[in-house]
Design a binder for these strands. Structure first.
Lengths: 356, 356
DNA sequence: TTGAAAGCGCTAACAA
DNA sequence: TTGTTAGCGCTTTCAA
């Protein structure tokens, strides 16, 4: 046996004394096969350690798969713009494998826009879906339809375990809170007044932010129980002026020394307030390398960002789905990304790094 | 034109009024083509935004490519074990594309073992090579041979710019020194005595470590000029006892408060000394998530590791080479990885993350 | 339950 | 300089 040449279905067929069609049938467990044929083929495959040639397989199949992506409008927010950029890269990456993609956007403040996107996505009759289920209260109907139709779906960014996606791609929120606390504590000490800010469009769907707070508080308690004063606040993004006023009030009233913001957009909003009131001394830690956050970090207003890698999350989601559709390769049930600590000194290295 | 169906060479050929072979020729710029044919084909490709089907292309080519990998023996060192694990994963990943790989190991303390590995790699008659050129003084002959034979080669971990590899995958050493300094400074202040340790098998080939030191010193100078006392030392790994003694002496004599170690193995060696002399108070920052380093970090003896991602570097090196061989896709001339800051709180998230 | 054969899109040897 | 054609390994239809 030539070590270098791979064994083909044809080789197996010859060894087993059957036709290639029969081998194909046992390979994919379709059609009816006699016991004898099955055994002979299995034996030959075992012996030769046969591996299906996926390249030839996809070419032979020549089927077109469609993937629908459901996420908040990238125009609304730089975070979702980055996710969407991952989607676009993935799209280019997978056309050649006969995978077609279509994105459906919704507005997080508007339930009807979500319902509409949902409807449109289904009308696209996708073979798989990638979803950022940030409005999960509204999405249950969708998941049921998908389950019924046996359309596989993957979540990214936010998970809804009960909905049982075939995979979730995101981060360990609790642990990310701990990472934030570790960073903040070492910079803050011996100062002691901390604010946790949850700044979010849709407070009722923002329960997952509490996980970050839990991690944050646990870490502090473990290390320096009762030394720090921690206050947390839920702030809704509506008027920017009002938000600014609220943040300013909190900082002054509680005599704040350090701030942990649980959302990416909130990070830049808070940084802008710190800039306005001239408080670079306050240690600020937030999430994600949004354009504005990058600027504030370089200005020294944001000290640390925990990178959730929205672009990579989305890109990987498409890869997982494509591999599942094309090659029946099951993705991990949960893929939690590394908790990347971004500071002034390494931020450029993250910006330069591309998706691999 | 059916939006869903991809355009094929055949379609282009029909549009341009030529044969598929002619289209193939302009696609790969081989053979002779008349100006008219060229223009017609180009026009048709532009119009339809034609994309080569790589699946069909690899299948059609049906050529076997061989990649030789040259790196230090993974048995010697957990760092190279991780690189090697990336190689193994890559190997499994690319067999299906008719890429065969063979690794050739050498001992960093032994020039003749390097020469031998070199010779064996060439005897394998590879179509491409992936090299960790850590013994570059000995490798120049090899690079010349490869250039002459027009065998493309990629470096990882260490770069030798003069050797002009088609790509280098690694990290910005200077900037990684700055990241180390940033971390150390915030933890150390108001203490002030810092040691930089270069602990390396082969001092004469360890010039690149000085880059890390330069970054480290620059940062400190910019932020707090003259406040900190920094001493640096080159220590050769030979007898462990002697090394331990040397490190202990330095710590005591210079009254050290914080240590920056420029190598991964050096990090664990230093941590073990700190453990032995009971000095958890000393802030230690090093490189890479070697097994031992992970343990020391969890014990609190190492405060921070800068992750060079050896596994991913190697894996990506193979991907770049494979894409180049199969699809003529040129990799970036340099791919510098993010400078990942690993601490006790996020180390598990890095350990769980797989290669994507 | 099985096999023959055409076809997927591209490559490359060969002939013209 | 160009075109014809037989593959590459697998899938799938159709007939037996």
């Amino acid at each position: 046996m030539d070590e270098n040449k791979s064994i083909r279905i044809k080789d197996i067929a010859e060894m087993a004394g059957v036709s290639v069609a029969t081998v194909d049938r046992v390979l994919h467990q379709r059609g009816k096969i006699s016991k004898e044929s099955l055994e002979k083929v299995m034996k030959a495959m075992k012996q030769t350690n046969y591996k299906l040639n996926l390249i030839a397989s996809t070419l032979g199949t020549n089927k077109l798969y469609k993937i629908a992506v459901l996420l908040p409008d990238p125009k609304d927010d730089d975070f979702w713009r980055q996710s969407n950029s991952g989607i676009i890269k993935a799209k280019e990456n997978w056309v050649q494998y006969n995978i077609r993609m279509e994105s459906f956007y919704f507005n997080m403040n508007d339930k009807s826009s979500f319902m509409n996107a949902e409807k449109q996505a289904l009308a696209f009759s996708p073979d798989g879906m990638l979803i950022a289920p940030v409005m999960h209260r509204e999405a249950n109907i969708l998941f049921n339809i998908l389950k019924e139709k046996k359309i596989p779906y993957i979540f990214f960014n936010t998970n809804i375990i009960e909905a049982e996606p075939i995979s979730f791609i995101g981060q360990d929120l609790y642990q990310s809170g701990r990472v934030g606390a570790e960073f903040l504590m070492t910079r803050l000490f011996p100062r002691k007044n901390i604010a946790i800010l949850h700044i979010w469009e849709d407070v009722q769907n923002g329960v997952h932010l509490k996980e970050k707070e839990r991690g944050f508080r646990d870490y502090i308690t473990e290390k320096k129980n009762k030394y720090f004063n921690i206050h947390s606040y839920n702030l809704k993004i509506c008027g920017e002026k009002e938000l600014n006023r609220e943040i300013t009030t909190i900082i002054k009233r509680d005599n704040i020394d350090g701030i942990f913001v649980s959302t990416s957009k909130g990070s830049s909003l808070t940084a802008s307030v710190l800039g306005k009131i001239g408080r670079k001394d306050i240690v600020l830690i937030g999430y994600d390398m949004l354009k504005e956050n990058i600027i504030y970090m370089k200005e020294g207003l944001i000290n640390c960002l925990i990178n959730q890698n929205p672009e990579k999350q989305a890109f990987l989601g498409v890869s997982y789905l494509s591999n599942f559709l094309l090659f029946k390769k099951r993705p991990p049930v949960t893929d939690l990304f590394p908790l990347e600590i971004v500071t002034k000194e390494n931020i450029d290295s993250f910006l330069n790094a591309s998706i691999h």
